[in-house]
Amino acid sequence: MGPIMVLTLRALTRGKRLLAISLLLAIPPLLSLLDQGNVDMQSGEFAMDIFYQLMIPILLPLTTLVLATSALGGEVEDGTLPYLTLKPVSRVSIVVAKLLAVILVSTVLVEVSSALMYLIAEHSTFSGRDFGAILLSALAGCIAYSAVFLPLGLFIPRRGLIVGFMYVLIWEGLLAGFSTGLATLSVRRYVQGVLEAGLGSSPLASLYPSSVSGTVSLLVVLALLAIGGLLTTWRLIRIQLP
């Protein structure tokens, strides 16, 4: 598992892909910088707004989408997958290595962006609880979305990115925000659930009322991780490379 994870980490953290993601994730800290001096909002509210409205539904899923679809889908497209599957390595360990690499890279990138955004916006009113809630929910989001998008690269390697992009923009970014019913079927809701649970008794918690408990949200994230891993393994066992 180690060599495949190192290989994937190197593949994911190179070139234009990383540059594009970094530019995307530079938006929240830049917004925080631009908002310096605004005293109209409650302490911590600005950073939390950006995280809640922009990072969770759009930037976080897009980041994991780009990384997850290229982790295995890129190998199919580039013709390099046989160098992993024609070795005495179980399919499960290939998938676990790929999944861990995607989660690690996306988490580092999203956490750095979120932390910078919060620290720039709220450096004078820093709350450890709010900061921790942001980091925790970012981690949960990276895990959940990585598990959702990893199999996409194997099922539809050529169109995985575009299909995932439409899903993020239309479902997670738009429709899931309109009704509670639709939100139940979105990953976004459970990432927000983790955030709200992390905020606990913070004054900000009332601004982001929770519709699911933190425990349920965490269980859903873990379930997505298991389902995504199993689905990817199942596909990797059956995939044919003509």
């Binding site: 190197r10 593949a11 580039d78 390099t80 046989p82 160098y83 024609l86 070795k87 005495p88 399919r91």
Partner: peptide
């Protein structure tokens, strides 16, 4: 099929030209 341990005894030069350019 579905027998990874067998690859301990097998070497394959695949048709695909793709390699990891960064290695």
């Amino acid at each position: 099929l579905a027998n990874p341990p067998l690859y301990r005894h097998i070497g394959v030069v695949p048709e695909q030209e793709g390699l990891y350019p960064f290695l």
